[in-house]
Design a protein around this nucleic acid. Structure first.
Lengths: 340, 340
DNA sequence: ATACCCATTGCAATCGATTGCAATGATGTG
DNA sequence: CACATCATTGCAATCGATTGCAATGGGTAT
């Protein structure tokens, strides 16, 4: 592959001059520059970024670590991130951690060795697993911005949806609909101030209702969700509404309910969280809480690039919380007492 | 950040020795090596890949260009690809071309400048747009493997699902169900031997039926699909089955049909293509054609890594075609004549 | 004791760029 | 005409690794 030296020889100048010419420096005579440009063009010269990166001590690359792509939420987010990253002039190095500690570490090491300029860390449902290692990297000067919140996240810049507020909106919606016996299907995660189920339960309590412990199902898989539904259908009095902590779970809940002959929302209302595209396609269309993913992606890469360019290098970590909103569709309706 | 030289100084040896020690070379005394390893470890030394890449003339990274992430088919594919790529010891540089010519070119340039070892090009619905440029790159020695087929693809290694066969299976399925009046909603793409609609129409013809030109709708967006459905509902006699060339279209078709009070499949059968996860969630669950995405991803990266390592460097381009299969669900049923 | 061998280590070139500084020559000025 | 100025250009160091080759020195065979 053509290199600077080759073009220099062809043009009868030194490689320094070629380098300057191609960079558009004013230090080279206009005629010379144009001649060099022509030659470079004719021979299809393209700068070797890896040499350039070595000399310049940066790579114009951003590392992105995400858990997986099978939950449609992530592709949506990554699509936006990729667009903003490329608009900002960076390349994207993508690593899928597969929700597993070892991989998250490996990705971090890899990204660091490759000297990416900064890292975007999308934490899985369990929060950041490589937290300790990430903190080390971060302290050593590599800009890292987190998507999501978990205990310890405050050491980083982070961006998250206002999940707690979304959960509260759901709670009020259900209360308004007259539901008194509500079940919660959630994961045993603890996202502190941003925890969905905690906020939900608290808001319901604000309304003067307490959610029976027996109506709180902690699940860790779709299998569990199915089991939870089966159990729930046997309890007396049977709940008239279910809050599932994410759409993908709400979807299997609806499916299972319908398979058991229960009508949604006539018999039981179901509400999810995330506003997946799919949520509007299923029948009944899912009531859920959405967040402007685009806004989050934008904040994410903006924050990171600012850190990289040093605009905000010294500043304290900041967290940005983007609002969520309730999207009322067909899976939720007025409570009908069917305990009899 | 620590470099080789620093560790060398600490250990009282030359940087060459450190390099060898860390690479596990037998050319360095065991005791020396262990001492160096300990020091490197203590000080958190991590090799600078960009320097290494420059010297070694390869980057251990694979470039992936895909059109977008909003059609769930792509994330599914990319997930698999990412897993295989990482299993093979490479990093992934992801570029989303957004179906637009200019971006595809830009990505190719970028990837080349970054000296990725090879490129995986997943072509959008319109086939490879940067075909000419890609061909140039390929000729210049950069391994490129294509996902999908388009006229001219034979110059590359490529992997594709056997879409034509899938379409034929659908045709026979519809024929078996007794449908005589069938509509096709497809895109004006011409994927030659792998074209879905062409294969479908031909197979129907094998069954002795000819699909009326008026029943073939060429669309380029979901909007168009909705329009097509409206038109279709006015034709007499009204078709009893619709073949949509991809699930995402089939989904809006169903939605539109149902909105118009048509029952699927009682009044009209609808069949898609791709087997998106969503297809099994909607109501009625979609009859469609699926393909082992995992197998395609595997073939894709296997082929590419073989080219990179030179195992098959000299060999002719090869195309691998992975089988497809009909998945019968609820959206297709026996034909009922409702023309009256 | 001499010669030779082998294990270990260091020297220096190399990968392909960028850039501070020195060198060159043309031009302008007093 | 002598000298300062300025626009161009080249030299050489540098980024942080890898690796062929030479150098060193201890051990063994003759």
């Amino acid at each position: 592959m053509m290199k600077l030296e080759d073009i220099a020889k062809l043009a009868g100048v030194s490689h320094s001059t070629v380098s300057r010419a191609l960079a558009g420096s004013t230090l080279v005579n206009r005629a010379t520059r144009e001649r060099i440009e022509a030659i470079a063009n004719d021979h299809g010269y393209m700068v070797n970024q890896v040499a350039r990166n070595l000399k310049l001590q940066h790579t114009n690359t951003i590392g992105l670590i995400a858990p997986e792509l099978s939950n449609p939420y992530y592709p949506k987010l990554i699509q936006c991130i990729a667009d903003y990253v490329s608009a900002a002039g960076y390349s994207l190095q993508l690593h899928l951690s597969g929700k597993n500690q070892e991989n998250e570490d490996k990705s971090l090491v890899n990204l660091r060795n490759n000297r990416v300029d900064g890292i975007l860390l999308v934490t899985g449902e369990h929060g950041l697993m490589a937290s300790e290692y990430a903190a080390g990297l971060h302290k050593s000067g590599i800009p890292i911005v987190l998507m999501g919140w978990f205990p310890g996240a405050d050491a980083f810049d982070f961006v998250t949806g206002d999940d707690a507020d979304g959960a509260r909106q759901i709670a009020r919606h259900l209360l308004d609909l007259g539901h008194k016996n509500i079940a919660v299907i959630g994961k045993p995660v603890h996202r502190g101030p941003f925890d969905r189920t905690t906020a939900f339960i608290n808001e319901i309590a604000q309304g003067g209702l307490v959610i029976d412990a027996g109506n709180c199902y902690e699940i860790t898989s779709e299998q569990d969700a199915i089991l939870a539904v089966k159990q729930l259908l046997q309890t007396e009095p049977r709940p008239t509404a279910i809050f599932a902590y994410q759409d993908s779970i709400a979807l299997v809940v609806c499916k299972e309910l319908q398979a058991a002959g229960i009508r949604v929302p006539d018999d039981i209302s179901v509400i999810g969280f995330d506003d997946l595209d799919m949520a509007s396609y299923v029948s009944p269309a899912l009531t859920t809480v959405g967040c402007h993913i685009d806004a989050m992606a934008k904040a994410l890469v903006q924050r990171l690039t600012e850190r990289i360019t040093g605009e905000t290098a010294a500043a304290e970590p900041v967290g940005v919380v983007v609002p969520t909103r309730l999207i009322t569709r067909q899976s939720s309706g007025p409570a009908h007492d069917i305990s009899s």
